[in-house]
């Protein structure tokens, strides 16, 4: 199975949803519209044997219009092909369709992505925080929460017991 054939098939089926294709990176990467996520991944799983969801994670690019992203890594174990799908949403409307009905493993991964990036997985059966405390009211992996600058000098260490 060649990526070019797969891409052609995806283009035929999801004409308007494929936003960009990147073949230079180590893994074949497609950026897709958020509406097509579940349908395309189901298609890849059922028709093209991408039966393994290696990873599902979030990302935050504060300089983009659609700041938040979800990245899916799918793996076809038989042909040993990998594919990476990216989709981006705005911070105001971070809704992405949940994959739990396609891959059971997506359950906790989506909870983690929700926990750290605040992406709302529509249709998830139990979208609550997984690693952080329940009453936390922010999403810590977003870029507006930087770590303390290691070179800052305005702090007197004596007050911090260091």
């Amino acid at each position: 199975m060649e990526y070019s054939i797969l891409l052609q098939e995806l283009k035929n089926k999801f004409e308007n949803s494929i936003l960009s294709v990147d073949e230079t990176a180590d893994i074949f990467t497609i950026t897709i519209a958020v509406e097509a996520v579940k349908e395309m991944i189901t298609f890849l799983k059922e028709q093209h044997n991408f039966i393994f969801l290696t990873d599902l994670c979030g990302i935050h690019y504060p300089e983009e219009d659609k700041e938040l992203g979800v990245i899916y890594h799918l793996h076809n174990l038989v042909a040993n092909k990998r594919i990476r799908l990216k989709t981006f949403v705005t911070k105001e409307n971070p809704q992405v369709e949940s994959l739990v009905s396609v891959f059971s493993g997506a359950n906790w991964m989506e909870r983690e992505t929700f926990d750290f990036y605040g992406i709302d997985f529509v249709g998830h059966p139990n979208l609550i925080r997984i690693l952080n405390v329940e009453y936390m009211d922010y999403y810590p992996m977003r870029k507006e929460y930087p770590l303390e600058d290691a070179t800052r000098s305005d702090k007197d260490d004596r007050f911090f017991g260091r």
Partner: peptide, 14 residues
């Protein structure tokens, strides 16, 4: 399973 997250990704950003 929570409450012992060590924020490696965040630390690695810098």
């Amino acid at each position: 399973i929570g409450y012992i997250h060590r924020a490696f990704e965040k630390i690695a950003e810098r």
